[in-house]
Nucleic acid binder design. Structure first.
Lengths: 129, 129
DNA sequence: GTTATATTTTACCAGTTAGTTAATTAACTT
DNA sequence: AAGTTAATTAACTAACTGGTAAAATATAAC
């Protein structure tokens, strides 16, 4: 997955207007005017947002008379989710390293008592979903 | 979850240098100099990137002599993942709506033959993980 | 063919961003 | 106290962003 693509996806997602547009589009294909309706900004501003989303590959456009309907293209979103997921795995790993570290600390302190009960909440951390 | 927080998280993730820093930090806490090493940019530029990440809550900083080590804070990342996940569910739903639509189309065409075999690949779309 | 509707393009502006170099702060080392 | 190392702040610049208003384009409807 190219970094440029991730750049484009994440920066498209960084704007609340654009996120709202995506959520609306998940309900189905629709016109620019209907997309624009909820927002207090001008039509050209919406056109610009749509161009950002299109360049990021998050939406595509059609033609129907004087309307240019927008439809969702979810693939890049999936890539972004995958990046975060991969990252989340790293994060899990660093917890594991912390576990291991704390365990060695504890066992060096508890040399006399052979039991090492471990478990400082390993199962608690936000689940694997 | 506040929109501002999502804005900050996604725009922090929109830069490849910052993503690389996060991935490095997932391997463990480290100094600014070590974080800067792989990149062809100046130290002040790295300081700025770290400030962006810190403002987004994605990292936090410590003190150890003249070093200010950075450590990962994964919670906002999780929120971003949750947003995308929620969105992905919408996306699934729109596939379901498409399913329903195509099914009505097919059944209106196939009025004579009562069988409606459905399944145009419903199980194929990227799984629920 | 004129008029109305939907959308985009153009030209502009203010604020932000990512980078630079030079100077500054903070802490350790001798 | 003087010097070294780590990192930040300050001041500046070029490019990008999100917005505007006004003009242009494209299609439909009369």
């Amino acid at each position: 997955m190219s970094p440029d693509r991730l750049d484009a996806t994440f920066s498209a997602l960084a704007d609340p207007t654009r996120r709202a547009i995506l959520v609306r589009l998940a309900l189905g294909e629709t016109s620019v005017a209907e997309l624009a309706a909820p927002f207090p900004i001008s039509a050209p501003a919406i056109t610009k947002h749509l161009k950002v989303l299109e360049n990021a590959g998050l939406i595509s456009r059609g033609r129907h008379a004087q309307w240019r309907p927008c439809r969702l293209e979810a693939a890049p979103l999936q890539e972004a989710a995958d990046f975060i997921e991969q990252y989340r795995q790293f994060w899990e790993q660093s917890f594991d390293r912390l576990d291991a570290y704390l365990q060695t600390l504890q066992s060096s302190q508890d040399q006399s008592k052979k039991e090492k009960k471990n478990g400082h909440g390993k199962t608690k951390r936000s689940g694997n979903r």
